[in-house]
């Protein structure tokens, strides 16, 4: 148990805080712990979670991707155009098109990073601007409101009407989110390639000497992130029912903050899918709780920022304490350079 805790301190800590928040909000409001509220929390955060696990794979491999949210916008536009061209399509075709365009955009990032040997943050800031610039240039900022019916129709996995007449439901995006979570968890934990990603992220030079193919690692990490960006983009259209070129601009930082909050290390080699879920839910429940408690919206940003700050800094205190139990050489220095 202590081993599990010490290897996943951030997750354990965040889980405890989250549990406290849930209990607190359930007591403070009679609206938090209702089927309607919990299902809408899941619906609203499914797209963020899909992106979060994509970004997690890149972070585990020691990289960072700023461009994925804008890439998702590009995917939405191109998918809408291609579907218009083939005359409608269906979900299978939608997933194929969105997934492959997303994958392609991710591979562009990987090729640039590996080919020019430049750190990923610089390349993805550049591609972030390039993707967005090209999108605005070709679309002239125009939104698309007429989309195929199958794409914007709601598909319910579950619906329920409470005694007071309030409807709750789970959308298709939640099922897709769960599938992405399971696939990512299986991929990074149970496959050889997945374990190699951790090794590569933790110590790229060591991994190279151990015979791991560096180019392949970059391609897999950024390709996976691109794939998730594409799928997330597809599902976001199902929720918003429209394609707006700048709708996702800026979402990358929210997702990045949530993933790092969930214990993924910016230096690489560390991070879990469970942590991602906790990080995203932590931010979402904070915002949801503030709305339900009727706190002034002028204070929202301040409170969310402060909560993240407290969560991150206290989790580091815990790490220092646990390292007293099991002093290990090298651990301290690694903490410093992160």
């Amino acid at each position: 148990m202590r081993k599990l805790l010490s290897s996943h301190t951030v997750e354990a800590r965040l889980f405890a805080v989250l549990l406290l928040m849930v209990v607190g909000l359930s007591l403070a409001t009679d609206t938090f712990l209702t089927v309607a509220n919990l299902t809408s929390l899941l619906n609203n955060n499914s797209v963020n979670l899909i992106w979060a696990v994509g970004l997690l794979v890149v972070l585990v491999a020691g990289g960072i991707d700023i461009s994925f949210a804008v890439a998702a916008s590009v995917v939405q536009y191109l998918t809408a155009q291609i579907l218009g061209y083939v005359g409608g399509g269906n979900w299978v075709l939608g997933f194929l098109i969105a997934g492959s365009i997303g994958l392609g955009l991710g591979l562009i990032n990987a090729a640039l990073i590996h080919g020019f040997k430049i750190v990923s943050i610089v390349i993805t800031i550049a591609t972030f601007n390039a993707f967005f610039g090209l999108l605005m240039f070709f679309t002239k900022g125009r939104s698309i409101y007429t989309l195929p019916d199958w794409w914007v129709d709601r598909i319910f996995l579950f619906e329920y009407q409470s005694a007071s007449g309030v409807w709750s439901e789970l959308h298709l995006s939640v099922a897709v989110m769960v599938a992405c979570l399971v696939a990512t968890a299986f991929f990074i934990n149970r496959t050889t390639t997945g374990r190699q990603l951790y090794a590569f992220g933790d110590n790229p030079e060591g991994a190279r000497r151990a015979g791991i193919n560096i180019a392949l690692m970059q391609a897999i990490a950024f390709g996976w992130c691109g794939l998730m960006a594409g799928i997330g983009g597809l599902m976001q259209v199902n929720i918003a029912k429209e394609v707006v070129p700048n709708a996702l601009y800026g979402r990358e930082l929210d997702v990045l903050a949530a993933v790092v909050l969930g214990g993924a290390r910016l230096g690489g080699g560390k991070g879990t899918v469970f942590g991602c879920v906790l990080g995203v839910l932590f931010v979402a429940i904070t915002q949801n709780g503030l709305n339900l408690l009727g706190v002034s919206p002028f204070a929202f940003q301040m409170i969310i920022g402060a909560t993240i700050l407290v969560a991150i800094s206290t989790s580091n205190v815990k790490i220092d304490l646990s390292s007293w139990f099991k002093p290990k050489s090298g651990q301290q220095s690694r903490r410093v350079d992160q």
Partner: peptide
């Protein structure tokens, strides 16, 4: 009026989730 004012109206996603929250909080 509930909750002063919310600065969410340049985003479909934000105004959608805020509305869901407000519906839940205010019968």
């Amino acid at each position: 009026l509930v909750g002063e004012r919310y600065g969410v109206a340049e985003s479909v996603d934000d105004s959608r989730s805020t509305t869901l929250d407000l519906i839940a909080a205010n019968e």
